[in-house]
Design a protein around this nucleic acid. Structure first.
Length: 819
RNA sequence: GCGGAUGUGGCGGAAUUGGCAGACGCGCUAGAUUCAGGUUCUAGUUCUCGCAAGGGAGUGGAGGUUCAAGUCCUCUCAUCCGCACCA
C-alpha cells in the first residue's frame, strides 16, 4: 500500500467534527476504578488562548488521558471564570454589556479548546459569570456573616485609579502597582469595606503547609509561609512619663530591650495627635501622605522627637518617644522600641538622629562590640550583656523568661503577629457577585434572606468610568425594602472580588447542576482532594491561599471533610517569546489558533511539551515546530505504507531485526510510563518516541508483518496522550473502533526490554579507552582478564604498574595505573 | 538586604542512582530524489591538533572529595524569580 501524505488539516477537521459534542471523560458514577481528579487552572477569558495556556492544558490533558488508560476514573473538568473581565470597563461600556462580552469570549475559547481536542468533561462546566453559580458565593457570604467571619469596617485600601476599584493586598505587585496595570501605582483610600476573616485561619494555613510538602513545589510553600508571615514575640508597655498611659510595642527581640534607646510611633498612631505639637502633627500627616502617594518600597527614614519620654519597664530607663515614617501602623501595635545596636533599620534611624547605640548582645564566642566601633547592627542571637539580672543568658532563654516576667507583672505578654491581613473582598465594579446585604436606616445591615438569592446583577447598566460602582446608578437595583422592617432601604452595591469565585469553583465541578446547595457533600467527599492541579506559579499566594482558606471554612460549616483542596500542585513554567515574557501589552503573544492554523493542533501541543521540561520556562520560536511536524508526518507515512503488511501479519519475533525493535519498543514504553509516573519530563518521552520511529525507519525492510502490526498499535497508544488526532486517525486506519485513549495503556515486559549483552565501558585512569560486550552477570575476574587483553587498553597500560582495578557489575571497569 | 532557582555545542535541551557528556530536535554541510524550488530519504555536525588512525581539552569560574564529578562539598561570578522597612 502506498503511503499517504500527512494532511493534518484533513485529519483534524474530520475528528474535530466527529468529536464536536463528545465528552471523552465522563467520570463514572459508582465506578470501581480508583478516582483521579486532574484540573488545570482557569485562563483569563480574554477571547484568545495563547501558547502558554496550551502548555497548561496539554500537560493536564496528557495526564488525564494517561490516567484513564491506566484504569482510573478520571474527572477532568473545564470551566470558566470571570477573572478576565477587562479592567477597561469604561472602554467596553459603549460597545457591549460586559456579561455578553464575557459569554462571547467564553464561547470563543471553548471553540479553541475543542479544536485542540482537549478531553474535558464539558458536562461539569461552570461559568462563574452566571447567577446560578454566583448565588452560592452569596450563600457562602451569608454563612460567614452569620458566624462573624464576614464583617465591614472602614479601612485604608489599595485603590487602582485605572481599574477604578479597590484591590486586595495580594493584588498589589511590582512595588505597589496594580496586578492588572503593572505600571500604575495604587493609591490608598479610606473606605467602608467588607472583609473575610482569613486571619482566623492564619495559624492553620501556616501549620498545614507541612502536609503539603512533597506534593506542592517548595517555592510556593515558601511564598505562602512568607505571606502569612507569622512572628512570635512579646508585647511590652512603655509607660508614658507623666501619665499612666502605656505605649504598647511589639518586638520579637525582647532580649535586646536594655539596648532600646528610644520608642518610635508610626505616624498614624493615635498617640501622635496627643503627644506631638501642631508642627509635629502636620509633619506626621505629611509622612502618611507621602507613603500613600508612593506606596510601599524603599523610603528615606525620617522622624521627629515628640518631646515626651516613656519608661522601659525592665530597666526603668527613660526613652525618648519619636515618630518615624518607617514604622507601620498596620503591623504589630504600630509602635516599636528601637534597638539600634541590634536592628539594621533602627541603626540607620538612630545614627541619623544622633540617638545612642548601646549593644547588649554579644556573639556566643565573641566580644561585645562597643558602640563607637559599631558600623552595623549585630542582629543575630547571642548572649545578653549589660542587662542586670538577665546578663549572661542566651538570647532565646532571655526572651522566654523576660516574656514571663512581663506577663507576671502585667506590663506585657507573649504575642503572635501575622503579616497576612483579612481579605478585603469589596469591589466597586459592576462585575462580580453582588454582596447580599441591605442597608436599612432603622435595622442597620440586614442580610438578604436565603430564599431571595441570588441577588442578580441588573442588565441595564451605564458605565460611567467615574470610579464609582455603576450599580449605584441603577435605582431598581439599589432601592429595596428592608427584609426586616419593610421600610425603604438601600442595597449594597459593592460586588465581590472574583477571587471568591475561583476559591471553590473546583468543588462545583463535582455537582455543577445542583440548585439546592453549592454541591453535594457526598460527591465532594468522593472526588476530593484534587489529585493533581496544574497551573502557573503566579497564583502562588492569591488563588492558592484563598482556596485553602475556603476549604477550611467549608469544612467548618460541614460541607467537606478535607482540610486542603489540592494534594499535588504542579507549577508549569512560563512561555516566553523571543526572550521576553509573553504579554498582550508587548504584543508578542503567540496565539494558539494561529499556530494550529499553520502546523495543526497536534504539532502545537506536541511541540510545547517537547520544548522543555514543563516546570521550566521555555523560549518559543515558531521555526522549531518544523521538527515536530516532520516527525508526525514520518509516523503517519510509516503507518499508512505498512498497513497492508501489518494486516497480513505473520510470525514476528524470530528475525534479529524484530528482536531488536521489540526491545526498543519495550524500553520506550518503560521510559514513557516512568516519565508519567514521576517527573513528567514529556520532552524526553517524546524524544523517546522519536528514537523508536527512527529505528523503525532504519529496520523497516527487515521487519516481519507481525512485528510491524504490534509496533503500529503500541506506537499509536504511546502517542495518544500527546497527539490525539493523529493517534485516532491511525487507530482507525488500523481498523480499530472507538476513541484510542479509551484503550488500555501498553505494558512493558521487563524481559523483552532487557539487552542481550551488557555493554561494558573500559577506562584507564578514569578515561574512556574501549568498550566490550559481555553477558549480564559476568564475573569480575573474567571482565578484568578480557579488558587487559584488549589491544587499545594494553597501549595505555603497557609497562605501567596496575595499582587498582574497579569493576562495576555489567557497567564499567576502571584500571588505575601508575608510572 | 533576605529567600529561591538556573548556568552544558551555533540554538532548545538530554544525561532519573557519582560510572561512555552532548540523546532527541532546530540550524548548518554534503549526497540521493526532483525540470526547478519545496517535500522526502541518507550521511555528517562540541572544540582543537592530525591526510588518517588517533591524541588533547571540555558542562559559568577557582579549589576540594573520589578509582571515577555536569552530578557531592567549599568559595566565587552571572542571570532570572519571589519578598522587601513585617520590628
Amino acid at each position: 500500500m502506498p503511503e499517504k501524505p500527512y494532511d493534518h488539516n484533513h485529519i483534524e477537521l474530520k475528528w474535530h467534527q466527529r468529536w464536536e459534542n463528545a465528552t471523552f471523560y465522563k467520570a463514572e458514577e459508582n465506578s470501581t476504578r480508583p478516582k483521579y481528579y486532574v484540573l488545570e487552572m482557569l485562563p483569563y477569558p480574554s477571547g484568545t488562548l495563547h501558547i502558554g495556556h496550551i502548555r497548561n492544558y496539554a500537560i493536564g490533558d496528557a495526564l488525564a488521558r494517561y490516567k484513564w488508560m491506566r484504569g482510573f476514573n478520571v474527572l477532568h473538568p473545564m470551566g470558566w471564570d470571570a477573572f478576565g473581565l477587562p479592567a477597561e470597563n469604561a472602554a467596553i461600556a459603549n460597545q457591549r454589556h460586559p456579561r455578553e462580552w464575557t459569554l462571547q469570549n467564553i464561547a470563543a475559547m471553548k471553540k479553541t479548546h475543542r479544536r485542540f481536542g482537549f478531553s474535558y468533561d464539558w458536562d461539569c462546566e461552570v461559568s462563574t459569570c452566571e447567577p446560578e453559580y454566583y448565588r452560592w458565593n452569596q450563600w457562602f457570604f451569608l454563612k460567614m456573616l452569620e458566624r462573624g467571619m464576614a464583617y465591614r469596617k472602614e479601612a485604608l485600601v489599595n485603590w487602582c485609579p485605572k481599574c477604578g476599584t479597590v484591590l486586595a493586598n495580594e493584588q498589589v505587585v511590582n512595588d505597589g502597582c496594580c496586578w492588572r496595570h503593572e505600571d500604575t501605582p495604587v493609591e490608598q483610600r479610606a473606605l467602608e469595606q467588607w472583609f473575610l476573616r482569613i486571619t482566623d485561619y492564619a495559624d492553620e494555613l501556616l501549620g498545614d503547609i507541612k502536609n503539603l510538602e512533597g506534593g506542592w513545589p517548595e517555592r510556593v510553600l515558601t511564598m505562602q509561609r512568607n505571606w502569612i508571615g507569622r512572628s512570635e514575640g512579646t508585647e511590652v508597655d512603655f509607660r508614658l512619663e507623666g501619665t499612666a498611659a502605656p505605649i504598647r510595642v511589639f518586638t520579637t527581640r525582647v532580649d535586646t530591650i536594655y539596648g532600646a534607646t528610644c520608642v518610635i510611633l508610626a505616624p498614624e498612631h493615635p498617640l501622635v495627635a496627643q503627644l506631638a505639637d501642631a508642627e509635629g502633627r502636620s509633619c506626621a500627616k505629611a509622612m502618611v501622605d507621602a507613603r500613600a502617594a508612593q506606596g510601599p518600597g524603599d523610603v528615606e527614614k525620617e522622624g521627629f522627637f515628640t518631646g515626651h519620654y516613656a519608661v522601659n519597664p525592665y530597666s526603668g530607663e527613660r526613652a525618648p518617644v519619636w515618630v518615624g515614617n518607617f514604622v507601620l501602623m498596620t503591623y504589630g501595635t504600630g509602635a516599636i522600641m528601637a534597638v539600634p545596636a541590634h536592628d539594621d533599620r533602627d541603626f540607620e534611624f538612630c545614627t541619623k538622629y544622633g540617638i545612642p547605640v548601646r549593644p547588649v548582645i554579644r556573639p556566643v564566642d565573641g566580644e561585645l562590640t562597643r558602640a563607637e566601633e559599631a558600623k552595623t547592627a549585630f542582629t543575630d542571637d547571642g548572649v545578653v550583656e549589660n542587662s542586670n539580672e538577665w546578663s549572661g543568658l542566651p538570647s532565646a532563654e532571655a526572651r522566654r523568661r523576660m516574656t514571663a516576667k512581663a506577663e507576671a507583672e502585667g506590663f506585657g505578654k507573649g504575642a503572635v503577629t501575622f503579616r497576612i491581613k483579612d481579605w478585603g473582598i469589596s469591589r466597586q465594579r459592576y462585575w462580580g457577585t453582588p454582596i447580599p446585604v441591605i442597608h436599612c436606616a432603622g435595622c442597620g445591615v440586614v442580610p438578604v434572606p436565603e430564599r431571595d438569592l441570588p441577588v442578580v446583577l441588573p442588565l441595564n447598566v451605564q458605565f460611567t468610568g467615574k470610579g464609582r460602582s455603576p450599580l449605584e446608578e441603577v435605582p431598581e437595583f439599589v432601592n429595596v425594602k428592608c427584609p426586616q422592617c419593610g421600610g425603604a432601604a438601600r442595597r449594597e452595591t459593592d460586588t465581590m472580588d472574583t477571587f471568591v469565585d475561583s476559591s471553590w469553583y473546583f468543588y462545583r465541578y463535582c455537582d455543577a447542576r445542583n440548585d439546592r446547595m453549592p454541591f453535594d457533600p457526598a460527591r465532594a467527599a468522593y472526588w476530593f482532594e484534587i489529585d493533581q492541579y496544574i497551573g502557573g506559579v503566579e497564583h502562588a499566594i492569591l488563588h492558592l491561599i484563598y482556596s485553602r482558606f475556603f476549604t477550611k471554612m467549608m469544612r467548618d460549616i460541614g460541607l467537606v471533610k478535607n482540610s486542603e483542596p489540592v494534594r499535588r500542585l504542579f507549577t508549569q513554567g512560563m512561555v516566553i517569546a523571543e526572550g521576553a515574557k509573553m504579554s498582550k501589552s508587548k504584543g508578542n503573544v503567540v496565539g494558539a489558533d494561529s499556530l494550529a492554523d499553520r502546523y495543526g493542533a497536534d504539532t502545537a501541543r506536541l511541540f510545547i511539551l517537547f520544548a522543555g521540561p514543563p516546570e521550566k520556562e521555555v523560549d518559543w520560536r515558531d521555526e522549531r515546530a518544523e521538527g515536530i511536524y516532520r516527525f508526525l508526518g514520518r509516523v503517519y507515512r510509516f503507518a499508512t505504507r505498512n498497513l497492508e503488511r501489518a494486516r497480513a501479519g505473520g510470525e514476528g519475533g524470530a528475525a534479529n531485526a524484530d528482536r531488536k525493535i521489540v526491545r526498543k519498543l519495550h524500553q520506550t514504553i518503560r521510559k514513557i510510563t516512568e516519565d508519567f509516573e514521576s517527573r513528567w519530563h514529556f520532552n524526553t518521552s517524546i524524544s523517546g518516541i522519536m528514537e523508536l520511529v527512527n529505528e523503525l525507519y532504519a529496520e523497516e525492510q527487515r521487519l516481519s508483518g507481525g512485528t510491524v502490526a504490534e509496533l503500529l498499535v503500541k506506537l499509536t497508544l504511546l502517542l495518544a496522550p500527546f497527539a490525539p488526532y493523529l493517534a485516532q486517525e491511525i487507530w482507525e486506519e488500523l481498523g480499530r473502533q472507538g476513541p484510542v485513549f479509551r484503550e488500555t495503556w501498553p505494558c512493558y515486559d521487563a524481559e523483552l526490554a532487557k539487552d542481550d549483552l551488557a555493554e561494558i565501558v573500559v577506562q584507564v585512569n578514569g578515561k574512556l579507552r574501549s568498550h566490550m560486550y559481555a553477558p549480564f552477570g559476568t564475573p569480575e575476574e573474567e571482565i578484568k582478564a578480557r579488558a587487559l587483553e584488549d589491544p587499545k587498553v594494553r597501549a595505555f597500560v603497557a609497562d605501567k604498574q596496575i595499582v587498582k582495578v574497579i569493576v562495576v557489575r555489567d557497567k564499567l571497569i576502571n584500571i588505575v595505573v601508575k608510572g
